[in-house]
Amino acid sequence: MRDQGKAAAVASDLPIPVAHQFDDARQQHEAAAMGMWIFLATEILFFGGLFTGYAVYRAVEPQGFHEASRHLDLLLGTLNTGLLLTSSLTMALAVHSAENGLRRPTIGWLLTTSMLGLGFLAIKGYEYAHKVHEHLWPGPHFVAPPDASRGFEQFFVLYVSMTGLHAIHMAAGLLVMWVMVIILWRSRHVARHSNFVEMFGLYWHFVDIVWIFLFPLLYLIDRS
């Protein structure tokens, strides 16, 4: 289905340029998709170190994690999850438009996606500021409640490290997205860039998936 869309776009547009080392556009696309997925596999393991730390520390000190988790703002966390899920939808629509050679919708969906991403980062920044204010930001100024169990501070170390690494990935994604918008704005032939949009989309969805796991692990430790 998708390939038919691509073929139609190619037929109605200028041919996609093929780099010298490839035989044809199909081989080029196959290589790009494979390369992107391998890159995402490295990203899984990059975040994986933190998930491992989370798993073993939580297994050893469940009570401290439980107490600390309740200091996170569930409403903001849920809202942010909603924003990211929506941005994944708009990103998918951007890729879909690019593959069909629709320039304006592509740019529009990309800008929508980036606004949702910005909203996410703004809320995240607000949450961080709040944690600094409450002395729950790890480091020399951290003050745990007097009755806190062991592991309480470690939860916040992991909370900031994991969401921070995720936020860095979001910010990097936003920068690339805006560069992409400028390129598409100047170019007439969206289909020529549809590989780029598609590969970037994979990255954006991946960042979304990381959050899909971070949200329950950090915000939803048994609220009952």
Binding site: D3, E30, W37, G48, F51, S88, A92
Partner: peptide, 28 residues
């Protein structure tokens, strides 16, 4: 599966996607 088009990807790409997860499971 849907947004990232794994459903229409080649088996080798699906294998790489699962490979990353599998190695993470080993680590944990």
């Amino acid at each position: 599966w849907v947004f990232m088009h794994l459903r229409s990807s080649t088996p080798i790409v699906i294998l790489f996607a699962l490979g990353g997860v599998f190695w993470l499971v080993i680590l944990i």
